[in-house]
C-alpha cells in the first residue's frame, strides 16, 4: 500500500506542476493589487470623492483607519479569506474532477494507493495550498496597508503594530480562516466526487459560498425554526467563525459556540463519510469515459 505521506507529496507535486494552480495564484495577486490600488486611490482622491466614506457607520471608522495597520490586518484577512476560499474551491473541484475525467484515479489505484488514503492525501494537499494562499494574501494585505500608510503621510509606524501580539493575532486569524478553507475544500471535493462532474462541484460550491449567507438571512426571517435551519447550512458554522476575524468581533455565548462547533464538526464528518462511501463504491472506469 502506498503510504498517505507519498500520496500527499504526490498531490502537492501535481498541484505545483499544474498550470491552473499558478493561474489561480496570479489571480490572487492581481486581485489584491487591484483592490488595494483602488482603495488607496479612493483615499487619495480629491475631497468629495470618498475620503470620508465610512466603512462601518456605527463605529464611525474611516476607510483610511480601517486600511492602516494594526486594524488593516482585519480588513485584509476578510478579503483574503473570501478570495482564497473561492480559489481553493476551484482547485478542489479541479483536482478531483480531472482525476475522474482523465482516468488518472485508476492509475493511482493501480499503483497501490488505497481509496481512503487518496482522499486524505488530497484534502491535506488542499489544506497546505490553502494555507500558502492565506499567508501570501495576508502578506500582500500587510504590504497594502503599509503602502497606504506611506501614501497618506503617516509613515510606517512600527511601534504601533510590529509587536508579538500582532503576530499572535495574525496567527489566530490564519487558524480560523484555515478551518473555513478546509470545510469549503471538503464541500467542493465531495460534491465533485459524488456528481463525477467538475462543473457541478464547482458550481454548487461557489453558489453556496456566495449565496449561503443570504439564504441563512432569509431563513432567519421565518422565526426560530428558520434561524435553526439557517444554522444547519454547511456555510453557517464557518461564516460565524469568520466573523470573529473582524476588528471588533462579536462575542459568542456558550450556546453559540455549541451550534458553531456542532455545525463544523458535523458537516466535516458527514462530508468525509459521503466521500469515502461514494469513492469505495465508485465505478472508476465509467467515471472516466
Amino acid at each position: 500500500m502506498t503510504p498517505i505521506s507519498r500520496i500527499f507529496i504526490g498531490e502537492i507535486w501535481k498541484l505545483l506542476k499544474r498550470p491552473m494552480t499558478w493561474t489561480l495564484a496570479i489571480i490572487l495577486v492581481v486581485l489584491m493589487v487591484l483592490i488595494y490600488g483602488t482603495l488607496i486611490g479612493t483615499i487619495l482622491a480629491p475631497d468629495g470623492m470618498g475620503v470620508d466614506v465610512e466603512v462601518d457607520q456605527s463605529m464611525g471608522t474611516s476607510l483610511e483607519e480601517a486600511l492602516i495597520l494594526p486594524d488593516g490586518l482585519y480588513m485584509g484577512i476578510g478579503l483574503v479569506q473570501l478570495m482564497v476560499t473561492a480559489l481553493i474551491i476551484v482547485l478542489a473541484a479541479g483536482m478531483v474532477g480531472s482525476d475522474l475525467s482523465w482516468g488518472t484515479i485508476r492509475t493511482m489505484l493501480m499503483m497501490g494507493a488505497g481509496r481512503t488514503p487518496i482522499l486524505i492525501g488530497k484534502i491535506l494537499a488542499l489544506g497546505v495550498l490553502g494555507l500558502a494562499g492565506l499567508v501570501i494574501g495576508m502578506l500582500l494585505s500587510i504590504i497594502g496597508s503599509l503602502v497606504t500608510a506611506v501614501a497618506v503621510g503617516e509613515g510606517i509606524q512600527f511601534s504601533s503594530w510590529a509587536t508579538a501580539g500582532f503576530v499572535g493575532e495574525a496567527g489566530v486569524l490564519l487558524f480560523r480562516s484555515m478551518i473555513g478553507i478546509m470545510v469549503w475544500a471538503a464541500i467542493a471535493a465531495t460534491i465533485t466526487l459524488m456528481s463525477r462532474s467538475l462543473a457541478a462541484g464547482l458550481g454548487a460550491s461557489l453558489a453556496l459560498l456566495f449565496l449561503g449567507g443570504q439564504i441563512g438571512g432569509l431563513l432567519g426571517q421565518l422565526g426560530n425554526i428558520g434561524v435553526w435551519m439557517g444554522r444547519a447550512l454547511p456555510n453557517a458554522g464557518v461564516d460565524a467563525l469568520n466573523q470573529l476575524n473582524a476588528a471588533i468581533p462579536p462575542s459568542y455565548a456558550a450556546g453559540d459556540w455549541a451550534w458553531i462547533l456542532a455545525n463544523i464538526i458535523g458537516w466535516l464528518v458527514l462530508l468525509a463519510i459521503a466521500a469515502v462511501v461514494t469513492f469505495r463504491r465508485m465505478d472508476t472506469l465509467a467515471a472516466g469515459s
Partner: peptide, 18 residues
C-alpha cells in the same frame, strides 16, 4: 490514463513515487 500537463518522464516519476 495520465496527466496531460506533465511530461512523460514526470508522469512516470510520479507513478514510480506512488
Amino acid at each position: 490514463a495520465l496527466y496531460p500537463y506533465m511530461s512523460g518522464r514526470d508522469n512516470l516519476r510520479l507513478w514510480a513515487y506512488l
